[in-house]
Amino acid sequence: MSDILLRIENLRISFGKDDRRVAAVNGVSLEVGSGEVVGLVGESGSGKSLTCRSVIRLLPPGGEMTANRVLFEGVDVQSLDRDALRAHRAHNVGMIFQDPFSCLDPTKRIGEQIAETLRVNVGLDREAAKVQALSLLEDVGISSPERRYLAYPHELSGGMRQRVMIAIAVATKPKLLIADEATTALDVTTQAQILDLIVRLRREIGMSVLLVSHDFGVIAQVCDRVAVMYGGYVVEFGPVADICNRPQHPYTRALLDSIPTIESAGQRIRRDGIPGQPPSLGEIEQGCPFVNRCSYASDACRTLELSMREVGPGHTSACPVTIGSGS
């Protein structure tokens, strides 16, 4: 964790026409050390995916990003020209998305899709690409790869397809793997297997991982550090154990409280979650975005200037209130 691989400073992403632009990501700062697994957690709509996409500058149409810096190995991603950006996407960052089905070309055999990545991005010839693709299929835990090589996406289960996506993402041995809700669409058992796979590949390839989830349980299992996002802001950032044991932001605490617990009957029971709705885009002009759902809120929260405050070693929070430990 000595070197910093990725450092995002004051990232803003906005949508809409000139005078009606609203920010979906609002001054996010974040860092990922080399070899580190950093989690990004928060309810849906908090800006996790957009933050991930800024790393490869792949925003949805209409989205505009500004940042003081988005440094990847010391180079600002914002300054890359078209070819350099393509090379950055091809070699530095591998990305897996939530829905492994819609991310594969439905008309091409999955083996060919892996081989295509190897031919185009690594420069292997047809033969070598096929051999390498087969061994990648094996690496990601797909049995009888020769047969699966010829399968079309719709012939595979969700877990299998996600393994294929992972094979494609790590085909170029990237320095950073971004997994955006990569396990959300899968059942619990498959979810655990895919997480194990990601962790194993990280070790083997020596890459860093930016792992997005709205499930703190998943984050707590595999991450070194975690950034908690809410309403386009990072509200708390720090070592995962620290944050789990001593959450400093009321939102983090609420999120931790809503982790599913296992009852004696073996049933998964989700507590009611956090009461209320996250703010909609452009709703917050000033103050803390969590104020309407926060049990610690005071009038001062509506006008306060959001800034990260050191609350422990390497642990920062955007809330000026100090909460006692434990939950």
Binding site: L58, H88, A90, S102, C103, L104, P106, N121
Partner: peptide
């Protein structure tokens, strides 16, 4: 569709994405 975005995320060029993935579909 998302697989076009996934192909962009892989760093494929626009002509490759157009002719190898989009046109076929």
């Amino acid at each position: 569709l998302e697989y076009v975005e996934a192909a962009q995320a892989r760093g494929f060029s626009t002509p490759r994405i157009l002719f190898k993935h989009v046109m076929r579909n």
